[in-house]
Structures are given as C-alpha cells and as structure tokens.
C-alpha cells in the first residue's frame, strides 16, 4: 500500500478533508469516501460519460481523474444540482420530457448540460446533439433527451 495524501476540496459547496491513496480515482472517492453515489461509473475508461462531474465548473470524467488531482478544486455532482423537492429546471425538464429511463446515465447528462445551457441559452437541436455526443445512453435513443434540453433551455431562460 502506498502513502496517503491529504486532500482538501469542495464538493457541492461543502469543504472536505480526507486522506487518500494517490491511485484512488475521483469517481471512487466521491462514491465511496463521500457517499455521493449519484455519480455512476459505466465504463471506467472515459467513454460513456456517466461519471461526468463539474470540475471548477467544467464537465470532466471523474473516472479519469485521481482524487488527489482535485486537491484545492471545486467539484459539483448531481446531488448538488437540486433535491427531490426542489429540482433544478434541467432536472424538471428531463422529468417532463421523459428524458430518462433506467436513469443510470442521467447524472452524467445533467452535469454535461448544465454549463452547456448556461453558455447556450437557446441551442438548436444540432447543437444539443453535439453537446451530448460524449454521453452514452442505451435506453432513450436520445430523442426525449434532446426534447428535455430544449424544454430546459426554455425554463432556464424565463
């Protein structure tokens, strides 16, 4: 076993300090050390996008980042977006447009889309498809996700 490193970071607005092995992945850290299991791991090699989190506001694959690399940084996971009783408009839109089925890939879509919609308040279908092209979904065929993003953009504009 290797030495432990002191890691301090902010996740969903809360500060954490933990000691971790240098090889611990950020995805595992979030899920196992912090109990934030909303971040899902689908392929462990950065392709599927299920583990996407916001790293200093930018979408990043938490399965390709070591936890120690997040030292001093700010992370947002799906748990930080909204709650069951107070959904984020993007989450609401996914609900209304049936933008999810099994829901496993969903947190990665939401975290990918949050900064996208902030930068593109009125995206075209083509732009939406491109924005989500790095996230795989096996259930929906993406159509209702595209619909959800359009609806979310509308909600977030008003």
């Amino acid at each position: 076993m290797s030495d432990l490193f002191n890691l301090s970071l902010t996740v969903n607005g809360a500060a954490y300090e933990r000691q971790v092995e240098p090889r611990l992945l950020l995805s595992d850290f979030l899920r196992q050390n912090l109990g934030l299991t909303g971040t899902h791991v689908g392929c462990e090699h950065g392709v599927c996008g299920a583990c996407t989190i916001l790293f200093d506001g930018e979408p990043a694959r938490s399965c390709l980042i070591f936890a120690v690399q997040a030292h001093g940084h700010e992370v947002l996971t799906v748990e930080g977006m909204g709650t069951i009783d107070n959904l984020h408009p993007l989450q609401e839109a996914f609900w209304e447009a049936h933008g999810l089925q099994c829901g496993f890939c969903t947190p990665g879509f939401l975290t990918t889309l949050l900064p996208f919609l902030e930068e593109n308040p009125d995206p075209s279908e083509e732009e939406i498809r491109e924005a989500i092209s790095g996230n795989l979904c096996r259930c929906t065929g993406y159509q209702h996700i595209v619909d959800a993003v359009k609806l979310a953009a509308e909600k977030m504009r008003t």
């Binding site: 299991t37 799906v78 829901g103 969903t106 939401l110």
Partner: peptide, 21 residues
C-alpha cells in the same frame, strides 16, 4: 403521465446495486 420514479433518479437518490454500502 410523467414518471413517479424520476425525481429520485434525477437527483442521484435512487439505489443501484453499486450504491449498497
């Protein structure tokens, strides 16, 4: 009708097997 299960899935609060601790 929109789905009953979605709020939990959308907020990371739905239990999948890997979440069992």
């Amino acid at each position: 009708i929109k789905r009953n299960e979605d709020p939990r899935l959308l907020t990371g609060q739905a239990l999948f097997v890997d979440d069992v601790d």
